[in-house]
């Protein structure tokens, strides 16, 4: 017995990791029409948010205001 949405806000049985594995296979094998597929960057961001979103947002919500100058510099580059 498991909930449908896990603690990472991912769907059980249709997880982002499973999608990433199939997308990787799709680079070499014709899997069908996915109309462009997920896209590497989108996939990377979503993987990051699903797996590291909680600690990242914990820092952002606590210290976000202090990190603003750093984030601004990062965005400029």
């Amino acid at each position: 017995m498991k909930p449908i949405v896990d603690s990472r806000y991912d769907l059980e049985g249709t997880s982002i990791l499973r999608l990433a594995r199939l997308a990787l296979l799709g680079k070499w094998l014709p899997l069908g029409n996915f109309r462009g597929g997920p896209g590497a960057r989108c996939l990377a961001v979503l993987l990051l948010l699903h797996f590291l979103g909680r600690p990242l947002y914990a820092i952002h919500l606590r210290y976000g205001h202090r990190l603003q100058p750093l984030l601004r510099r990062l965005r400029r580059h």
Binding site: Y9, F34, R35, G36, G37, P38, G39, C42, V45, L46, L49, H50, G53, R54, L56, Y57, A58, H60, L61
Partner: peptide, 26 residues
Amino acid sequence: LHDVGEAQRKSLVKRYYNYSDGKPFW
């Protein structure tokens, strides 16, 4: 209340929604 879990969830929904605009797969 500044809920970390809710911030993560909304951030994910936002990205899924925004990506679906440019990439039909999502």
